[in-house]
Simulated assay, not measured.
Amino acid sequence: MTLSHRLFYFPSENDTDKSSGYSINLWEPGDMNRKIGTLLILAGTLLITAAQASSLEYRGVPNPVRVKLEDTLTFLKSMKAEQALPKNPASPLHREVFGEFDGENYLRWFETRIKRIGIDSCGGGSATACAIYFMPTWMYLTPYFVRSPLSRVAQLAVLLHEARHSEHDHNGWVHVECPIPFLDDQGQEIKSYFSGDKLAGLKACDDSEYGSYAAEYLFMSHVADYCSNCTATERNEARTIADQGIYRITDLRAREALRRDRADH
């Protein structure tokens, strides 16, 4: 019986005869501390890969951000409605956009649209992320997203919103300009939940009850009302995002359709 000295072997791209590539030789002389450190790094990488909740491919995404996103997607997958409810609580419009209120369903919905995540400025400013329908399956996170301490709920608002933009229908549900002035029902100026920036005159609104902000509203309002394994803080934040976000649907007919959908259900 021959004991191989190669503990790990990583073939190169053109390695057909297994004679090239990268290996760690524990039996040759050298700095044992360095070798052990390398093994620990490799083991950590393998554990992170094994624990990944999604099927996403990451390109240039810092590992801490990747770990944070996977934790958020694990949270998404775990979402369940209150068991005491007689049936799934998804409203008619929610069913049209997402299907039932169910974490595994949400994750499938996301993964059928987004398969790769990279880093890009997305035009700069305080943009958090972007997805473009003519670059299907890609989503880009911005430096603002990377450095911002967004909660899991806030991250999901961004991820599901951008996933809606990746759809070919209606050219990716492009945004329209917000009105000037841009005020809520109490006459207060509407600002971004994430950055606090003023939105009047910016292409940061929708005119449909099926667009990205509508999808974000439907998801967040259902989380606020029905998520049984969310904390009170998470449900309250979801309510805040929904209550503020519905004003991004500036077409009054579409906004009323969303409100009626929730009120009648």
Rank of each mutant, 00 (worst) to 15 (best):
M1A: 14
T2P: 08
Y9N: 05
S20W: 00
S20L: 00
Y22V: 08
S23H: 00
I24M: 04
I24D: 00
N25V: 12
L26V: 09
W27Q: 12
W27H: 15
E28V: 12
G30F: 05
D31A: 10
I36F: 08
I36G: 07
G37L: 04
L39A: 06
I41R: 08
G44A: 14
T45L: 03
L46S: 09
I48D: 07
A51V: 02
A51G: 04
A53Q: 15
L56D: 07
L56P: 15
E57N: 14
N63S: 15
P64S: 10
R66D: 02
V67H: 15
K68E: 10
L69P: 01
T72E: 05
T74P: 08
F75C: 10
K80P: 10
K80N: 08
K80F: 10
K80H: 06
A84K: 12
A84S: 08
P86R: 10
N88C: 02
A90I: 01
P92C: 01
L93N: 15
R95S: 13
E96P: 01
E96T: 03
E96H: 10
D102M: 02
G103Q: 09
E104D: 08
Y106C: 02
R108L: 11
W109V: 01
E111N: 09
E111Q: 14
R113D: 01
I117S: 10
G118E: 04
G118T: 01
D120N: 10
S121M: 07
C122T: 02
G124H: 01
A127R: 03
T128M: 13
C130F: 03
A131N: 13
I132E: 12
I132L: 05
F134Q: 06
M135F: 15
M135T: 06
P136W: 06
M139P: 05
Y140G: 01
L141Y: 00
L141A: 00
Y144F: 01
S148Q: 14
P149E: 12
P149V: 04
S151L: 13
V153K: 14
V153C: 07
A154I: 06
Q155E: 13
L156C: 07
V158W: 04
L159K: 03
L160I: 09
H161N: 03
H161P: 03
R164L: 06
R164V: 07
H170S: 11
G172E: 11
P179Q: 07
F182T: 06
E189N: 05
K191V: 13
S192R: 06
Y193N: 05
S195E: 09
S195W: 03
G196A: 01
K198G: 08
A200L: 02
G201F: 04
D206H: 04
D207P: 01
E209L: 08
Y210K: 11
Y210I: 11
G211L: 14
A215Y: 05
Y217D: 04
S221W: 08
V223W: 14
D225P: 02
C227R: 14
A232R: 09
T233H: 09
E234C: 11
R235P: 03
R235D: 13
E237R: 05
A238R: 14
R239M: 07
T240S: 10
L252M: 08
E256H: 09
A257E: 12
A257C: 03
L258M: 15
R259C: 03
R262V: 12
R262K: 05
D264R: 05
H265P: 01
